[in-house]
Design a protein around this nucleic acid. Structure first.
Lengths: 340, 340
DNA sequence: TCGACGCCTTGGAACGTTTCAAGAAACATT
DNA sequence: AATGTTTCTTGAAACGTTCCAAGGCGTCGA
């Protein structure tokens, strides 16, 4: 029952009748290895069920072959996390990197990183949920540790990928204007969040570009009920025929609020959201929204991190903006066309 | 700009004026260390910002101090993943374990595990999405590698935690019967999934216990549209006044289907789901459903895995069933009471 | 005063890899 | 045939810990 000792590279070498270094060469695809030798070694590996020890592997070079991601606190559910992580891990695997997950335990955003480094670290980090003057960025820069950000960072020397929320919202506004809406309202988050500010900018741009009118801008916490309750006042004060929301959660609340006033979302008032949470397609009318291509973002982030790890040059990075996909559903259908 | 060499235990020893082994003793809380020595060493650690190398640490003992979890393929979105992972990582951290994430790349469910082991392995695994005769279970048992399962496993020697779907659904049925419904229908998944079969069993139990009638059982793929389209026939053929669904996705589809027939979910026909996906609270009427306590499940799994790792006895494990929480919303309100 | 026994500290081997300089073998060129 | 060159293989050091046996130095008892 006792688990027997794992075979080491030495056992493989003995079994294959070659030197330890030769086995290492084969396993790491070094040049100058005969096919015959390679075969002998691989056969032995197969036969013994050899598994390299990660520890021994990283010891000489000081590289852990690990990248790390800190799970955001769970106050806000994040349904897109699975796709994001999946893509990150898959992309990392292509470069023989594995992914370590850690969490923020206390309130200090830097502490988990400090802690992980103390425990043995990782070769690089993927950061998300970046805010203005994010402390983690300075911390990692100080220590000269490679990292990439999902979110906007002021410093152009930092590798960052972000969703072009402004462009997305602007596109949504133009689409809604295109189906005949003219009186727009925006429901956003309070000032001070990088993402929220960006999306508000996009709304204003979009309204201007489509020569429509913005009759109201509200800023509230990201909460279904806030959205729902806000609608009554909004309709009474400003009578918009299109409500553009900074998030799906708010938009879904707004739709519910409209129904409570006996207004039909889509038919009477157009509504848009942002994120394409699952609920947006599991409701009727379906919510027109913007989907962040988390898969593309994930691979892009890791690819850039990997190129930073192959520490040759300081790697010319700079921020990349990715346009979200506009998902058109019935909440912005053309009211002039027949009902479905 | 070049990152400077990290201080090693040797540097600490020199700085503190003691031997390397003494530093190790202090850091690992060995007995027989003077307070004076301990202080000297800790001061040096502090001053140098010493961080132990994970690799060097695991080398002698052969333990990686890592547990691993394989992300399920992303064909089915999994909104609860964030809570689950968060809890797993946090619980593992309490035992100085870190968590490695990997993914299933191809169609073979065992291959990713084999691959991870080859790459350096982990001390233990957390498995989810267990099916009947899961290949991974046999694979890991063969190799005598510690693991725990989220899901039901036939072999009672395997440590497993699962949600008692049957009890959950039965509770939902009884609750619905309690508000005056008598003609039940069940919408489940096709036979052959451990989870689906379990929930169907619970439905039948619940109906029997509440002396209600089951007028129909349908089995379809887990798909919003399936649920929606199925309703017309179901209402025509069997006229249920309560529809119990195996999942929220189907239940949301059913609610939409009812509306299309000008029936009001909650008022005319009660509807229940399973999972408490975010959409269930972001719709109106809110969907009565069962929530899997992912946080409790996560910690339980890891605690048991940890106790297996402290390899003393074969650790008497056995399966644990956790009852899901019944979340009551307006989709099962009492039709006799006044509308809200 | 001497010896035995504790407690604390220490040197050094071991862990399983990578890496690099150097050796051996095969081949090409004269 | 001798020399140079290239291709393939090897031995051994190094990586940063832990762990164990042994050493030093007090203290206590006789």
């Amino acid at each position: 029952m006792a688990r027997q000792r794992r075979p080491t590279i030495k056992d493989v070498a003995t079994a294959a009748g070659v030197a330890v270094s030769t086995v290492s060469n084969v396993l790491n695809d070094h040049p100058h290895v005969t096919d015959a030798t390679r075969r002998k070694v691989l056969d032995a590996v197969e036969k013994l069920g050899y598994q390299a020890s990660r520890a021994a592997k990283s010891l000489p070079g000081g590289r852990t072959h690990l990248i790390a991601y800190c799970l955001p606190g769970d106050e806000e559910p994040n349904p897109a996390l699975d796709v994001f992580l999946h893509r990150i891990v898959a992309t990392a695997a292509a470069s023989s990197l594995e992914m370590l997950l850690f969490v923020q335990q206390g309130h200090d955003s830097v502490e988990p990183y400090r802690d992980l480094l103390r425990r043995g670290g990782a070769d690089g980090f993927v950061l998300s949920g970046i805010e203005y003057d994010d402390e983690r960025v300075a911390f990692l820069q100080d220590r000269d540790i490679p990292f990439v950000c999902f979110g906007r960072v002021g410093d152009p020397g930092v590798t960052a990928v972000d969703v072009d929320g402004a462009a997305g919202i602007a596109a949504a506004v133009e689409h809604v204007a295109g189906v005949g809406r003219t009186r727009f309202a925006f429901i956003g988050w309070p000032d001070g969040s990088a993402t929220g500010d960006d999306r508000l900018r996009g709304y204003l741009d979009g309204v201007e570009r489509s020569r429509a009118a913005s009759v109201a801008v509200k800023q509230v916490r990201n909460d279904y009920d806030r959205g729902r309750k806000l609608v009554a006042d909004l309709m009474e004060d400003s009578r918009p025929d299109a409500i553009v929301c900074v998030s799906d959660v708010l938009a879904l609340g707004v739709m519910d609020g409209l129904r409570a006033l006996d207004l039909r979302p889509g038919a009477d008032v157009a509504v848009t959201g942002f994120d394409d949470v699952p609920a947006s397609s599991l409701t009727s009318p379906g919510l027109t929204t913007l989907r962040q291509p988390m898969d593309r973002i994930g691979s892009l982030l890791v690819e850039r991190l990997v190129s930073q790890l192959g520490r040759t040059a300081p790697s010319p990075s700079g921020p990349v903006l990715i346009e979200p996909d506009l998902i058109i559903r019935q909440s912005t259908r053309n009211p002039m066309l027949a009902d479905t």
